[in-house]
Design a protein around this nucleic acid. Sequence first.
DNA 1: GATAAACTGGTACGAACGTATGGAACCGGG
DNA 2: CCCGGTTCCATACGTTCGTACCAGTTTATC
Lengths: 215, 215
Amino acid sequence: MGTKAQLTQNRSRVRRDELLAAAIELFAEGGSRAITHRAVAARAGLPPASTTYYFETIDDLIREALGAHVEQWTTDLTTLTNVEFEADVSIDDAAAFVTAVFAARGPEVAALELSIYLAAARVPELRDNAAEALGALETLAVAMLERVGVEDGAVLAAAIVALIAGTALRRQSGQYPERTEALLLSSAIRDLVAAHVLGAETVDRTLAELRKAKA
Amino acid sequence: MGTKAQLTQNRSRVRRDELLAAAIELFAEGGSRAITHRAVAARAGLPPASTTYYFETIDDLIREALGAHVEQWTTDLTTLTNVEFEADVSIDDAAAFVTAVFAARGPEVAALELSIYLAAARVPELRDNAAEALGALETLAVAMLERVGVEDGAVLAAAIVALIAGTALRRQSGQYPERTEALLLSSAIRDLVAAHVLGAETVDRTLAELRKAKA
DNA sequence: GATAAACTGGTACGAACGTATGGAACCGGG
DNA sequence: CCCGGTTCCATACGTTCGTACCAGTTTATC
């Protein structure tokens, strides 16, 4: 058991990051099966032994690579949350914005995050990262809702996050064309927001009337 | 390259299925990394060489195991779709039913389907299976909507499916307690249905009013 | 119940795996 | 600029992997 890397030198921190990036690439291409010490080192253009110097075990490497990636994603989401808009934002603008962000990330990239959320189920160390990323997405949704005039949008935001995640997942199966997924998403968001604005009583009443109409 | 198994004997079909079941078990426990010829055979209580007799390569084994599992899930969903209800089903009953089905499948089992939908992105052979399963869930949603009096629920059902899938995914991260997820899900379903019943004009008008109120 | 085909399972082999080692190369603090 | 610790990397070891082999056994068919 060699002593652990201490990363006091600049160059070594860079190399470590390169290894993590290479691992993410391989994971995206071929899943966790594609991540091996040798493959990661080769992808990063480094000698085979470099991975064992920086990572205790291969599982540590995978864990850390996935964790680092989802942290970056969390950061990106936070940045998006703080983007300044012109004062006048309609709900359609907001939905279009969210949908555009959704669509801009290709399915391949989205698959990465989804994989990480799933991996979190089996890897406790990733659970906080996953929850944080989903929380950041929720915060983004809350911010967008505020911009269009919805102030108490916490619960609504959670629903929208589920909607986005589910759409991202279905997208992977290719059941619907990309364009259709985007339309479905933004229209469902609009519906959820509208129901929220109308309030619980209106929703209850509407559903009660639906029931009566059926009889 | 030995000749392929032809499965003319009953015993051999049984063994093959046992191997597939063992593979799914291992996958659920440790992901695709846990699926090896030897591990699968050992789990099924069969000799190590049995896997190579029935499956050309290990990837074929994984593919087929995941495919078989999701097909079973599709069948289950179709069965649920045809369940008879007492004539009088309220939207709350329907939402509760869907949520109960959701909750009854533990997170671990749900993770399996989610993994398969994701794997479909990289494995073309699984894509049809995945789309079929999502389609079956959508059909179930359509059937439930019809029971509560919504006739033109195709698009609405697609949104609900996304909602369910996204909730299942978020559940894996443990961000919210199980109970909260269930409440969020059924309340969001109610909102979506209500918005659908109210119609596009009402939704548009509501959102327009929200915009005015903001100014 | 005989026979050809299919299945079984002990065994084996090369490749790729994770991991360890130790001297050479390198860098940052003094 | 020099020294001590850090980082690098060629190499190696034991393990486990995927896959192949084939003599022996069991099965479906007639």
